[in-house]
Design a protein around this nucleic acid. Sequence first.
DNA 1: AAATGTGGAATTTTT
DNA 2: TTCCACATTT
Length: 761
Amino acid sequence: MASPLLANLNPEQLAAVTLPHESALILAGAGSGKTRVLTTRIAWLLATGQASPLSILAVTFTNKAAKEMMTRLSLMTPIHTRGMWIGTFHGLCNRLLRTHHREANLPQLFQILDTQDQLALIKRMYKTHNIDEERFPPRQLQHFIAGAKEEGLRPNAVEADDPLSRRQVEHYALYEAMCQREGAVDFAELLLRSYEMLLGHEGLREHYQRRFSHILVDEFQDTNILQYKWLRQLTGTHTAVFAVGDDDQSIYAFRGANVANMQHFERDFSRPEVPVQLVKLEQNYRSHGHILDAANALIKHNLTRLGKNLWTSEAKGEPVRAFAAPSDLDEAAFVVDVVKGLASDGVTLSEVAVLYRSNAQSRVLEHALFNAAVPYRVYGGMRFFERAEIKHALAYLRLLAAPDDDGALLRIVNFPPRGIGARTLESLQDMARATDSALWPAACSGAAGGKAGACLAIFVRMIEAMRAATAGLPLPEAVEHVITASGLLAHYRNEKDGQDRVDNLEELVNAADSFLREADLPVDIPVDVPRADPALSETGGAAPAAAVRDPVSVLTAFLSHAALEAGDTQAAEGRPALQLMTVHSAKGLEFHSVFVTGLEEGLFPHENSLSEHGGVEEERRLMYVALTRARRRLYLTNAQSRMLHGQVRYNVPSRFITELPADLVQWLAPKRHRFGAAIDVDASEWGRSRAPLAPRAGASSPVRAQDGPEWRIGQSVRHTRFGLGIIIDAEGRGADARVQVNFREAGVKWLALEYAKLAAA
DNA sequence: AAATGTGGAATTTTT
DNA sequence: TTCCACATTT
């Protein structure tokens, strides 16, 4: 059909979009129009009448990706995107479990534990069971549980050969029991529960298999074993799974992502006579040629690949530029200078990104940018719904919605402080244990005497007053009431640095308001229930509206929303700002210019990765992701010395620089004048140079000539003829002692300490 | 119950 | 170095 939908697609994209009703694996390279193909595929299925909105399920990893898909889709098709299941794995599982909570053996108003809540629950469990936090660090158990669940394993299925694992499995079982008792579901449990529910309920499974004739998966290389099994459960005999991914961008193995899913896909999703189709998208629409050449050359060093080579019809463009800074401070100064140059060339700051391997590296960069008055934005850190004050407010709301929520009660029973100390809590917990009840009923019983009992009674009265006052109130007003009546607002107003927290609490009211307005897409509200099973009779059109009107459902939906979508790190500010982030968080983004900093052995590739299975290859993929973020300009920097954990470390340049073809890389030499003094510096002032020599790793012990002063690698020195430089290597002792100095002007030289007149600089 | 001190760890992250 | 969690003090 002559649809504008398909206009401007290249042959491979077109092939992918218009594939017949069969499962397919789309190998989509960086910048190859992956999201476009995914959304166009859906629009095409709808436009050609091959699918109705109800028969489409599209799943992503992040809310951002789901939203983008939704937005782009509604621009492409006149058909209402409502009724389509587009969301994150967790969001869709939440929807399934709310709808079929009985089959899943969950209360309808089950609460979702985020990572913090989960850890708190584990600690609480340790207390009640007298488990030693020293011997079994709570975080370790958390990791253990998440790992097991991500492989689809319940405690009885986990293999435990050593005593430690056996204990962990026991703790895992205790944890499960506690979650079940409290109606709490952690992130991995959302997946596992809905997987098991589909597995155990044939009618339900068949219903959804019949319903979803098309399942589309984004970032398939990031799926874990459980997500893969989940997809298989939903795949019936006439379900076509359209999986889009790039094995070269698989950088999340550490959180369970299993690239092997891509290899197994063909085997597991082929049907007799209906093999899985494979389409490669290799044309890149993002980067200039040199950048792409560098990325291709780098990733060729990986041996375990499905095989793919990006190409572009764009010009070769500028060379990749590299700069070896003497120190992390100099590296930051370089970035500042070049960024200023780019800005004066008219590049918007928000189109420039500075990437690093680990968050700790942002500090030095931020410092330099701050002093140079370059506006910047750092990604990562605390998200809105993770902040303590927000969690406190939500805990009050949780307690209103579910009085038996011990976690919520413990969080706020004495916050703001109201005289309920550890002793009071101890007796409260004893009372609860004695009557086998939750903490709230125990507190209500008034059994505690004395001052403790009085304080508890005041707390109980306050919560009950709150519950009465908020009953029937619209969500935003209920939130407003709670933050005031709880004393949270007053508490933070009295705190000297509390203004931000007050602002956040007020923002929570807005968040509730926009949630109400935007949640017309009934994400958490039961909409469709299979007709097949009489126990799950179709609720019809009236039920969702009723569900929406039920304040407890709305509140639960809001709380789920808070857990599943933690919100932004910080509000986007008005003026354009330089983007600072880890390479991981840059995945999926693109910029005019990109700096990849800290390219040093030990940092990138990270030293911890060297001992991990396939660790270096994953680091290399990470570098590949970093390189392919750049459209026009790419700068690679390393520092010969760097302050790390309070100690100066001397690192050799990353192998990832060396692995790039030398003719693609232009090395820049330090500028010929003082750092930071120039105002309007042009990037071109950084001259060419040959590849710098690197200091030998680990050779940092001091050297000295006979009776002379002591010198160290990394030290700045001045020579009467050669000027300023940095000691990058040393050998010999006494009369034979020599140091290698990288001079700013004169290049790298070996000097005998006996004769050279070196002075500290 | 708040305030101050101390020890230990310090990739990467979404849900 | 710096941040955090936890312990001790006041």
